[in-house]
């Protein structure tokens, strides 16, 4: 048997082109240069803290949403789940006059249970995740408003700022640190840690291998013994876990929670993941890419303010960037899949 009896394998041109983040990094540099020229205050150190904070609030959720997308699924309930998580801890602590940490713990359990529900529904019904999480999205939206009005009489919760454990919980979820002129929110730290852990899991663990396979070829994966449904359920619970972190940040930075908040944010997470190189069809993407996507979001949303433009333009930018990123990704995929 000779090796030369096989056609020589085609190489994927330049290695760099194989990186999912490539398009996002190019985009991030372009956006950075653009606002550096367009807005004088953009380059001030203080602005960096603001941009990073905006990026981190989206970025914390973009990480698990990117993993989920690599695993081949969507979660439209991610945005309101953040609010649900904040509402549960706030209302539980207030109603039970418990230490806020008890509420925070209960909220973690409830939020993870909702993620588990999404995963189980997906594997049991075999319906597209778009439909299932759209259902969860609507149900949670209703529950958030309904319960808050029922219990507190208004659309926002009562302040829990004077309750036991509030100070320590705030330190963990909503403190900030000032270095020189730069104010850095603790969410930035959470974000960096999550990106690092997610990258390690994706690239260096068995679970990561299973995530790529569950999205890129679920039937092939199942045939070689990969527990595809378990992997996907795990991913929904990862989304829930990060929604819990975001929800606690929301609660402890404002003391009160607006029950109607979070609607529409699920798309920002998805946009960050897609700009960061995740394929809508699954099986390809990176956690670092989602961070670059979130950073582009942060720069654009704040850059427009620094440039003193009407913020209405923001959505246009976001949309244009999404289209460009998707086109680039489609091109990358075609190269990667150039079979036969």
């Amino acid at each position: 048997m000779t090796a030369d009896s096989l056609a020589p394998p085609r190489r994927l041109g330049n290695r760099l082109f194989g990186r999912p983040e490539l398009g996002a990094v190019v985009g991030a540099v372009a956006v950075f240069v653009f606002f550096s020229v367009a807005a004088d205050s953009f380059l001030r150190p203080a602005s960096l803290g603001t941009v990073l904070y905006a990026a981190s609030t989206i970025g914390i959720m973009a990480v698990p949403v990117a993993l989920l997308m690599i695993g081949g699924e969507f979660d439209l309930s991610a945005g309101v789940l953040v609010t649900s998580s904040a509402l549960v801890s706030s209302m539980f602590s207030y109603q039970m006059t418990a230490n806020v940490w008890v509420g925070v713990g209960v909220s973690l359990l409830v939020t993870l249970a909702i993620g588990f529900f999404n995963g189980i529904m997906l594997s049991r019904t075999k319906l597209p995740s778009f439909i299932i999480t759209l259902g969860t999205f609507l149900m949670l939206t209703g529950l958030n408003l309904g319960f808050t009005k029922l219990i507190d009489g208004t659309v926002s919760t009562k302040s829990i700022a004077d309750m036991e454990g509030f100070a320590s919980a705030r330190a963990l979820f909503a403190s900030h640190l000032t270095i020189g002129d730069v104010g850095l929110q603790v969410t930035i730290l959470w974000w960096i840690v999550l990106v690092a852990v997610a990258t390690w899991v994706l690239l260096r663990t068995r679970a990561g291998n299973w995530i790529f396979a569950s999205g890129g070829g679920p039937d092939a994966a199942r045939a070689v013994g990969v527990p595809v449904t378990r992997t996907k359920t795990g991913l929904y619970m990862a989304v829930a876990f990060c929604a819990w972190i975001s929800g606690q940040h929301l609660l402890f930075s404002f003391d009160v929670v607006q029950s109607g908040e979070g609607i529409g944010n699920e798309f920002l997470y998805i946009i960050a993941a897609v700009i960061g190189g995740c394929l809508m069809t699954g099986g390809y993407g990176s956690a670092i890419g989602s961070a670059v996507g979130a950073f582009i979001f942060g720069m654009t949303s704040k850059g427009i303010v620094y440039a003193e433009w009407n913020p209405d333009w923001f959505k246009f930018f976001l949309g244009a960037m999404l289209l460009l990123a998707t086109l680039l990704n489609a091109w990358v995929r075609k190269r990667a899949e150039a079979a036969k």
């Binding site: 291998n209 790529f212 396979a213 890129g216 070829g217 092939a220 994966a221 070689v224 099986g283 990667a336």
Partner: peptide
């Protein structure tokens, strides 16, 4: 080995090789 289910196309050869038995 299934005709169309044999591999996950976007994953590197070595990841495919060990998929499910890493």
């Amino acid at each position: 080995v299934y005709q169309d289910l044999a591999v996950v196309p976007l994953m590197p050869v070595w990841r495919n090789f060990f998929l499910g038995s890493e």
